[in-house]
Every structure is written in structure tokens, then in C-alpha cells.
Write a protein that binds this DNA or RNA. Structure first.
Length: 476
RNA sequence: CGGCGUGUGGCUCAGCUUGGUAGAGCGCUACGUUCGGGACGUAGAGGCCGCAGGUUCGAAUCCUGUCACGCCGACCA
């Protein structure tokens, strides 16, 4: 947090975290603002991160039996209306299409805010027998939610995501799939994004509109706020009953399917920024970084320097590596590489070439070391692995150090006044207490973690007997 | 939806109070010198001052309206 800031263009985190975030997002050239509020241009540096997320998540999906499909982007109003809780949850934030060309439509259609209704409508006709089950489909697409307050990646009106929608013969199987996908997300976050998460179940107040149960992974940002980073919902047979999705089971009985849905969006890029970034810009975990190594030639116009740089690039072909051969000064290139979060920098100049070595600098700690050229490849391989694990350790430490617990109201209030982060506290299960806590502290229940602890016997808010230990926090 | 703020070359902004020939820095282009933590020189290109009305001999500047964006709040699976 207190690393020396070398780039003036980025506001320091401590000074103004929100401005820092905006600066990083634009200076790292992840996005540009567009002419439509809440809709952003995702630039190559940003989109390449998303492409890697897609690739790495998709291979995990496929390994668990997921098949990709694509659904229409328009939902007729009557279809959206079919599940009561669902429409109530989403209606306030959908965008409507009312005309086709010059003519008004007979029935207006919304641009999908999520595709449960489309999948349900499809499954109704597609599933007839237990032999058709399970259906484990996913789509990569964009959705639209007409948000009032928008922020790049964290909350935009149109965003990219994946949404998995499954149908199962039994409640047990649906529950299993719901948990399985949450674990896919959690493992992906830890192993690929180096972001530790808290896994748990949402309270009824916070769960998805129309779900029986919502599971979530919650990550803690550098400023101590929580970010819901992925969710997995068990719908039971609620949607199936609303849409009439029935199948004939082995016993020749007509039964309703049990469904799930689960999603991760470009919001996760916001998490990468706010978990790993520093005052010099973005810091990307090597696993997800579109460019892992940037080679920066020094005195590149001197005979042989650029050639050597290209030679090193070819030698490092196992990694995602680039040479910055633009005619900016080296100092400029260093800053650029740091703002973009490229994990490792290789500096190569005439002095190095003569000595048969080079200087490498890791982005996360900014530590510089000299390496002989014949050991470069191996050193970088080891360094990338080390950076990845160090980043996870550092993020874990931050999560642990900013997770508190409170057993009584005064203590609970005091922690939120003085600290920022997660606070573990007991809850009676009554929504009135959540409402009170939100009203008084602008804090929400993040989840009821799977790993329950006993902090106290009574609810931190009302003092009645406690049912669950809950993670509380301020959320994005 | 409420509060605050901002719209002037690509970017950041000055100019507006007190109306009178559109400015600076950065960036961009060309050439040269540089190069180990955002180098420098010289020469150049680039703007109906968000939009629409109004006042005025004359509007970036004053008035009215409008649109857009940003931040905060409310709301938000």
C-alpha cells in the first residue's frame, strides 16, 4: 500500500480510492467511456483479460460437462412476467424495445437482463423424458440492466458475462450442481486470479429474484469493501412450475425439473484491479495477464540491442512476451508496463549484452535482479510462478487482517466505525435485523459462510437466539 | 430519482465576474540529438468554445432552455 509512487498520472489509493480506480482503469487502457452512460468501450488491454478469463473458465466448465449455447437477446414482456419474484426483481432495470423499424411492436420486448426466462421457455419444449436430463448449458453473452449509478466493470448498463442454466431430474442433483459451480468459481478465483474468496449462502433478502437458494463468492477489495464476484443459484422447481417444464421419469410419472443458474461477469476484472492494484497502476496475476513479460531495450538504436531484444523474445516463446520497441524513452516504457500491470519486465541494454546478462523486475514487488542470459528462461518461469503465489498470499493476508468479529451491538458498530472489511457476527435469521443494520451502518449481509463459527449465542442486532454466523460488510 | 460538479484543439485545463481578433501545457507530425525510472531542440498541423433559442452593433463570456458526462446519495439478483 505504501509503495513509492512513480507515476503522477494516477491518484494514490489513500488519497481517493474511487479516483484511483478510475485512473487505473483508464491509464492501463482497459476501457474508454462511451457516449452512452454506463456503456464502456473495452479496449484491447481490457478485452484480452476478459478473453483469458473466458478461456480459463470455459475449460473448467467443459471439464464439468457444460455445453455452450446461444439464446436470443430479446424477451417478450409476457415471458418475463411468468415468474412473479423474478419479474419484480428485474422489471425496474430492464431496457425496452418498443419499435421494429418504424412500426410499434404488438408486444414490447426487453433486452435480456438475464436469461432464465428464455432458457425456461426453451427447456419447456426441449425436455420430455428423464433421458433428456440433465441439461447443462451455458452462454457467453452480454446483458443489459439500466443501472442508475454506473462504474466501469463494477456496474455498467451493458456487461459481458457467462450464464449457466441447468435442468435436472432431482432436487439433490440440482443442489449438487449449484455447489459444484460455486466451487469452480472459487477455485478459479484463487488459482487463476489469485483472489481469495469467502464462500457462503445469501440471506433471503439478498438472494436472486426467483431462487430458492443463492450461493456466492465474496472477495474483499483493498479499501475494505466487499465485491460479490460470482453467484450460483438453486431454483428448485419454482421456475419449472411457472413455465411448465415437465418430464416423464423412469416411474412413468410426470415431474417438474429442478434448475440452477450461475454467472460470472466482467465485474471480476474490477476485483482484479481492486485486490491487486497499487499506486503505480494495475498488477495482473501471471496466469491471467495477456502479456506476462515485457522486454524493454535500453539505447535501442545502438547496434545489436533491438536484435538481442527480439532474440530474447523468441527464446521466451513459452510465455506471453512482447518487446516495447516504440521510440519512447525507457523511463516512459517502465511506467507504461507498470500501469498495465505486466508481471515481469526485462531490461536489456548494451552493458548487459556485453556482460551476457539482463535486468528483470517483477511488477508486484518491483524488486530488480540481474540474471545471466542463459538462465533467463528458467528464471522467468520460476518467477512467474512465484509472483502468482505471492500475490495470492498477499491477498489472503489482506483478507485475514481485515476480517473481524463482533459479538455485541456496540462492538459491531465500533468495528465498522474504526475499520473497514468483513465483520463476522451472529444473526437471528430475521430480515428486520438486516434492515436495521443496513439503515444504521449502511452494511449488508454478504453471506452465511459454509464454514460456520460460533461467535456468540445471540443475534448481534436484536439479542434473540442466533441461528447463523454472517459475514457483514460494505459492498460495491 | 435527488444533491453537487463539469462540458473550450486528441488530453488536462485557463479565459467567463467586468461581452470586443480563441489561449497554455501535454499529446500528434517531420527532422536531429538522446536513452538504466515519464529526455530535449527546431519547424508544423489541429478548435462553429456540448446543443438550441434569446439579449446586444458584437456572445466562449450575460439570460432561458436542453442534452451529455462525472462524483455522492437513494435504489439495485
Amino acid at each position: 500500500m505504501a509503495e513509492k509512487k512513480l507515476v503522477e498520472a494516477i491518484t494514490s489509493m489513500n488519497e481517493d480510492f474511487a479516483q484511483w480506480y478510475t485512473d487505473v482503469v483508464t491509464k492501463a487502457e482497459l476501457i474508454d467511456y462511451s457516449n452512452v452512460k454506463g456503456c464502456m468501450v473495452i479496449k484491447p488491454a481490457g478485452y484480452a483479460i476478459w478473453e483469458n478469463i473466458q478461456k480459463r473458465l470455459d475449460e473448467r466448465f467443459k471439464a464439468s460437462g457444460v455445453e455452450n449455447v446461444y439464446m436470443p437477446m430479446f424477451i417478450p414482456e409476457s415471458l418475463l412476467q411468468k415468474e412473479k419474484d423474478h419479474v419484480e426483481g428485474f422489471a425496474p432495470e430492464v431496457a425496452w424495445v418498443t419499435h421494429g423499424g418504424l412500426n410499434p411492436l404488438q408486444e414490447r420486448m426487453c433486452v435480456r437482463p438475464t436469461s432464465e426466462t428464455l432458457f425456461c421457455d426453451f427447456y419447456k419444449g426441449d425436455i420430455h423424458s428423464y433421458r433428456d436430463l440433465p441439461r447443462v448449458y451455458n452462454q457467453w453473452c452480454s446483458v443489459v440492466r439500466w443501472e442508475k449509478e454506473t462504474r466501469p466493470f463494477l456496474r455498467s448498463r451493458e456487461f459481458l458475462w457467462q450464464e449457466g442454466h441447468t435442468a435436472h431430474a432431482t432436487a439433490e442433483e440440482a443442489e449438487q450442481r449449484t455447489e459444484q459451480m460455486l466451487n469452480v468459481y472459487a477455485d478459479f478465483c484463487e488459482e487463476v486470479l489469485a483472489i481469495p474468496v469467502v464462500k457462503g449462502r445469501k440471506t433471503d433478502k439478498e438472494k436472486f429474484a426467483g431462487a430458492e437458494a443463492t450461493y456466492t463468492i465474496e472477495a474483499l477489495m483493498h479499501d475494505g469493501k466487499a465485491l460479490q464476484s460470482g453467484t450460483s443459484h438453486n431454483f428448485g422447481d419454482g421456475f419449472a412450475k411457472a413455465f411448465g417444464i415437465q418430464f416423464t421419469d423412469r416411474d412413468n410419472q410426470l415431474k417438474y425439473v429442478h434448475q440452477t443458474s450461475w454467472g460470472v461477469s466482467t465485474r471480476i476484472i474490477g476485483a482484479i484491479i481492486m485486490v491487486h492494484g497499487d499506486d503505480s497502476g494495475l498488477v495482473l496475476p501471471p496466469e491471467i495477464a495477456p502479456t506476462q513479460v515485457m522486454i524493454i531495450p535500453i539505447q535501442q538504436k545502438k547496434e545489436g540491442v533491438l536484435d538481442k531484444a527480439y532474440e530474447l523474445r523468441d527464446k521466451l516463446g513459452n510465455f506471453r512476451v512482447k518487446v516495447d520497441d516504440s521510440d519512447k524513452s525507457p523511463g516512459w516504457k517502465f511506467s507504461e508496463q507498470e500501469m498495465r500491470g505486466i508481471p515481469v519486465r526485462v531490461e536489456i541494454g548494451p552493458k548487459d549484452i556485453e556482460a551476457g546478462k539482463c535486468v528483470i523486475c517483477r511488477r508486484d514487488t518491483r524488486e530488480k535482479i540481474e540474471v545471466s542470459l542463459d538462465q533467463l528462461e528458467q528464471t522467468i518461469a520460476e518467477l512467474l510462478t512465484k509472483i502468482q503465489s505471492d500475490m495470492l498470499s498477499k491477498a489472503k493476508r489482506h483478507l485475514e487482517e481485515h476480517t473481524y468479529s463482533a459479538s455485541a451491538w456496540e462492538e459491531f458498530v465500533k468495528v465498522f466505525e474504526e475499520k473497514s472489511g468483513f465483520v463476522k457476527a451472529m444473526w437471528c435469521g430475521d430480515q428486520a435485523c438486516e434492515d436495521t443494520i443496513k439503515e444504521k451502518l449502511s452494511v449488508t449481509s454478504r453471506c452465511m459462510p459454509f464454514e460456520q463459527e460460533h461467535i456468540a449465542d445471540t443475534c448481534v442486532c436484536c439479542g434473540k437466539p442466533a441461528k447463523k454466523m454472517v459475514y457483514w460488510g460494505k459492498a460495491y
